[in-house]
Design a protein around this nucleic acid. Structure first.
Length: 246
DNA sequence: CTAAATGTTAAGCC
DNA sequence: GGGCTTAACATTTA
């Protein structure tokens, strides 16, 4: 579930069934004010990075699946205690499990910079470049996970992008040659769309070249597995073919 | 059975 | 407040 492309798949599944539908009833153990949106219409279903957004006339329900969240259309498939929110509409029900749900009052555009979403039409590589220039001392492994810059990128995408562009995860932004910086920004989006395509075909894992891998298929040497950077997330890389710029 | 993981936020501390 | 550490959440897979 968690990375941006998976959220987009959810959005694409939910939209045709629930867009335009009125919420007739709401329940579940999410700590939100459900009376606020009963009898309101879902006017749009959107995403921003890893956020799924149910837009209502006066507020937006922000669903974040964290690590283990899931959803279901029409069938209650999990334990009651993990049911955060059930939305009942005419003929269809929408279930959200183990996720974080927040109500965002007012205009959704006030909350989100759509240009930061790597999967959005509005994605703006120049804006990303500008933000990266402001954090010269950060490592690329941390920068890729920064949702303000690359909304939607998660740890799998991080590892795959860095492998794809032959870049060592601990390279600092300020030491990146201009061309590498461009590649980093371009591939954050490109790989996310590949992830999306493979996820839809149920072949994502098969296409992993770095994430969880033990050997580099390019040079046959063992991969390094290290908890890199300030984010301390699992990072798989090849010391031989992923260059550390200094 | 245990540990680790596709993630984020809040609280606590210096 | 900044910046860092830790805990909390909770499911699935190896």
């Amino acid at each position: 579930m968690p990375e941006g492309p998976s959220i987009l798949i959810a959005q694409q599944a939910i939209t045709p069934v629930f867009k335009g539908k009125k919420i007739l009833n709401a329940s579940g153990n999410a700590k939100i004010e459900m009376v606020e949106f009963i009898n309101e219409k879902i006017i749009d279903v959107r995403t921003w990075g890893k956020h799924l957004l149910l837009c209502l006339p006066t507020e937006t329900l922000r669903i974040h699946f964290l690590m283990f969240g899931s959803y279901s259309i029409d069938k209650h498939i999990k334990l009651d205690r993990s049911l955060r929110l059930k939305l009942e509409c005419k003929e269809h029900d929408l279930y959200f499990y183990t996720c974080s749900i927040k109500q965002l009052p007012g205009d959704i555009n006030e909350y989100y910079d759509w240009k930061a979403d790597v999967l959005s039409k509005a994605w703006d590589p120049k804006a990303a470049r500008k933000k990266l220039k402001l954090i010269p001392n950060e490592m690329v492994c941390d920068a890729l996970l920064n949702q303000e810059i690359f909304a939607g990128v998660g740890n799998i995408i991080k590892n795959e992008v860095l492998y794809r562009i032959f870049l060592h995860p601990e390279t600092k932004i300020k030491n990146l040659p201009a061309r590498k910086l461009t590649e980093l920004i371009t591939q954050a989006r490109e790989y996310s769309f590949d992830f999306l395509k493979w996820k839809k075909e149920f072949t994502l894992k098969k296409h992993w070249l770095a994430h969880t891998k033990r050997t580099c298929l390019r040079c046959n040497l063992p991969f390094i597995k290290k908890y890199c950077g300030k984010t301390q997330r699992r990072t798989f890389f090849c010391k031989n073919c992923q260059l550390l710029y200094k």
